[in-house]
Amino acid sequence: MHATEIITTIFDLFPFALGGSIIAAILCSHIGVYVVSKRIVFFGAALTQIAVAGIAFAHLPFVGLNPAIGSALFTTLAAILLSQILRNPRIPRDAVLGVSFVVAIALRILMIQKSPAAEASEIETLSKGDILFVTSEQFLLLAGAFIVVMAIFIFFRKEFLFVSYDPETAQTQGFNSRWWELFFFVTAGIAISVATRIVGDVFVLGFLTIPPVAAIAAAKRVRHIFGIALLLSLLPPIIGMYGAFALDLPAGPTMVAAAFLLLVLGWGGRRLRSAFASEN
């Protein structure tokens, strides 16, 4: 297949997959800036697994829920629970997140094991990241979640940043850190749940971490971090989709690999530039 044919096919046959993956990438990388700066990357990892477990739970024969509702229910409950447990100074944060991650994976395997064969295979496909067949309904749901969650994060940016940066002083300034943390966890949880249902857990976790890490490392100002993270989320879905077609690979992991490639190229470029600068 020629390059032009691939591009035409993507735009003609899979516009929702391409548009959905770009929207999901921007959403995840914006939330990811907070996740990385709060040093709770495992929170993202655990919630993606819990979202998949929620989808599998919804498919169980005796449950019969809409998978989107199952996923949102599981992640919201987990987000509320985690936001409370993570405040306990006696338990290390990384230990809590590690336990929740491994329990979420176990739960997910158990739920899939008990799901009917057809649904189990659909969930496994989702996990592998075959995101080509995103429907218009799924795209609209994702776009709706994008608008609401981004509006919340932009409107309350200074409050979320203050509570993340220095929760104790924020509390003394009249910002109830407990409620702001809960608000953050639940909003991020809902976004992760919707995105995981549509683009898969590998994609979501990849974009929750790779663009924010690159942006935090590169930015000289906090406001630039969000802009760099946004730019770094636009290209990988396009490159990844093209690569997936050209090389017959699953789209989700290819997009994550493209994001990682950009991270490595950016890091290599900076190293080279500083090496040349020190020689001159």
Binding site: S37, E159, Y165, T169, Q173, F175, V222, I225
Partner: peptide, 18 residues
């Protein structure tokens, strides 16, 4: 936490948030 590159003025501005 010193991970995020806040400027001195941005840190002081937090005192105005309320």
């Amino acid at each position: 936490d010193l991970l995020l590159p806040f400027t001195t003025a941005e840190v002081v501005m937090m005192g105005r948030y309320r």
